[in-house]
Design a protein around this nucleic acid. Structure first.
Lengths: 152, 152
DNA sequence: TTGGTTGCAAACACTTTGCAGCTGA
DNA sequence: TCAGCTGCAAAGTGTTTGCAACCAA
């Protein structure tokens, strides 16, 4: 299973390279994969497995969860998505992560903010300096309360 | 359910105050709770629900998961533990958090480090300054690779 | 006594897997 | 053709809940 891989694929794979990259390793470019990839393209950012499945079903009512999960695994190997866990522990997929970033979930209002670029680097650097850990920020979602909810 | 509460209880509850605090609100101090509390006392830090259940079963073979989960919920309201999610999305409990701190899990060797005190404050401050989020670090476990595993 | 607790079993949500048949290359 | 892929159904996980019996206060 790809999710036991230590760290996400090094370089992200552009959308239009996907069919070729699949075929290059003997894999197939099927209608179901076309649907999933089209859906993912319209969802850049963070998405739950449930959302992905629902959107696929909207495009193709015959979509099956197992196929979606299996294909997401394949796409994760290609670096198109990488998965982590939302605050409630469910699978969460990050689409086409260009730079290391995490997500921030507000317990109060449910808002989600991305922790990206400079800030992500800063956090990574800080933790690395203190603990010697190379953090995989893209794999997690922090939780807390946003400014708005704190002022209530 | 207590796990929908916005943030963990403000002040941690010393072990010996637990019986009294329970009774004060009409709750009972039962053998099962005694067992669980004893087990938790011997496990300060991060523990998975499975570990807690297993250890309880070692002390009392009749221990039931449902009772453990329910009691952990009660103890979370008292501030004795607070729960989050491990890297794989399972429930994880932090026992008697004295100061805000998170955990760091190494994908390589499985080592767990605590992110505490100064470093935790620094991270919290950083994220707060940039995003306006009041982070609940105790609610999460970061993942990545530790120094040792990176050098392999 | 009596309402909080417990144990059991069943329900749950989500994800994974086995397998026979289908299909892209 | 023929491996990879799909759909289905079934099995897992890990956690939660309903309920009757139980027992701490």
């Amino acid at each position: 299973m790809s999710r036991t891989r230590p760290l996400p694929a090094a370089e992200p794979c552009p959308w239009d390279e996907i069919p070729g990259r699949l075929r290059a390793t003997g894999m197939r470019w099927t209608p179901q994969r076309r649907t999933l990839v089209r859906v993912l393209q319209s969802m850049e950012g963070h998405v739950s497995a449930a959302e992905i499945i629902e959107r696929c079903r909207a495009e193709d009512a015959t979509t099956t969860p197992s196929t979606v999960y299996r294909t997401l695994d394949v796409l994760e190997d290609l670096g198109v998505v990488c998965h982590g866990h939302a605050g409630d522990g469910r699978e969460e997929y990050h689409v086409l992560p260009q730079a290391p970033h995490g997500h921030f979930y507000c317990d109060g209002c449910g808002a989600v903010l991305e922790i990206r670029d400079e800030l992500a680097k800063e956090v990574v650097r800080l933790l690395e300096a203190h603990l010697g850990f190379e953090i995989d920020l893209s794999h997690l979602t922090l939780s807390g309360r946003c400014r708005g909810c704190r002022e209530e």
